[in-house]
């Protein structure tokens, strides 16, 4: 049975989605990388292998796609047939699930994006610049500071009756404003509700600036799990915000669909053995020209499999087999 694997390695998490040739999801998983993407990929591959052995040993991986900010690294390690940016991947996944979708709001660990679609294809997009307010990392940090498990964060927001206003221009000021509010006696749930509202306000004025937000609106990415943020978006937009199935793994799902659309003759997938191999990355400075690029080299069992990071192609264009 043919199956296609999509891997999305983001700043904080790694997502795996396995689909069949109809686009049905067979398996998905979402785990934190803990800052070690390579180990996380190996670990997840092992889990996937066990799942396949236990459920349907006939499954054969006939194509692999990677996306996310570590897409090149992940692509080199697993041997990807397609390396695609996360915006196109999200657009693909969202329009597959909801074909009439017009707006996709994607908030992940470090990035927040808006994608505008027409007839199922992306026609416009925007990404946050120089500012991580409203992304998963910041919410994580605040939940940790307040001692609230991130999973409970959303429920707490919904309890609030009178959300307080939190300055949201920048995470640093946002945090000091939150502390100020707590010191003058506001309730925790009002503060976190205010935080969600502030982050949505920041998103709409920074990332979605000047874009026409039309319904249906899909909300995906790790932060879409947070019911507080969903509530704040619906309140600010005055429209229904849909959180589809596989909202957390939409990028991986999208890239798997993209691979399926143009399946390779023979997949470049290195096989599940790589989860037991010794994979190391190292970097050195090329002295070839004044650019002095930092070249990164990936080694698998002490054999160099790829180099990248150079501008001229002196290292990356060499053949490594």
């Amino acid at each position: 049975m043919k199956a296609y694997l999509g891997i999305d390695v983001g700043s904080l998490t790694v997502k795996f989605v396995l689909i069949d040739k109809k686009g049905e999801v067979l398996y998905w998983n979402y785990e934190r990388t803990g800052g070690r993407p390579i180990e996380a990929i190996q670990r997840e591959l092992k889990k996937l292998k066990e799942w396949i052995e236990n459920h349907n040993p006939k499954i054969e991986i006939s194509g692999v796609g990677t996306t996310g900010s570590a897409r090149y690294l992940a692509g080199v390690i697993v041997g990807a047939d397609l390396i695609k940016n996360e915006i196109t991947a999200h657009a693909k996944g969202a329009s597959f699930l909801v074909p009439e979708v017009r707006t996709v709001i994607d908030i992940g660990g470090q990035d927040s994006k808006i994608i505008i679609l027409e007839n199922g294809v992306a026609v416009d997009f925007a990404m946050n610049y120089l500012c991580a307010a409203g992304t998963g990392s910041f919410l994580d940090a605040q939940a940790f500071r307040l001692g609230i498990p991130i999973e409970k964060f959303g429920e707490l927001v919904l309890k609030s009756k009178k959300p307080t206003t939190i300055a949201s221009r920048c995470t640093v000021f946002c945090e000091s404003d939150m502390i100020h509010k707590q010191q003058i006696g506001h309730k925790v749930e009002d503060i976190v509700a205010g935080l969600c509202e502030g982050l949505v306000r920041n998103y709409l004025s920074n990332v979605a600036k000047g874009k026409k937000i039309l319904s249906p609106i899909l909300f995906v990415g790790g932060v879409s799990e947070n019911v507080g943020m969903r509530w704040a978006f619906e309140k600010a937009l005055g429209q229904k915000v849909i959180v589809p199935k596989y909202n957390k793994v939409m990028g991986a799902f999208g890239v798997a669909l993209l691979v399926k659309e143009h399946p390779p003759q023979k997949t470049k997938f290195r096989g599940f053995e790589i989860s037991d191999m010794d994979i190391k990355c190292d970097s050195f400075q090329c002295k070839g020209c004044p650019n002095q690029c930092e070249v990164i080299e990936a080694k698998m069992n002490d054999k160099i499999i790829a180099r990248w990071g150079d501008r001229c192609g002196r290292w990356s264009n060499l053949r490594y087999d």
Binding site: S69, K84, N85, I87, T88, V121, A122, F125, M127
Partner: peptide, 16 residues
């Protein structure tokens, strides 16, 4: 890396 992501996504939009 951020510029690359934007350029790649933009090229996809352009091709559409």
């Amino acid at each position: 890396a951020g510029i690359d992501t934007r350029i790649e996504a933009f090229v996809d939009v352009v091709k559409n």
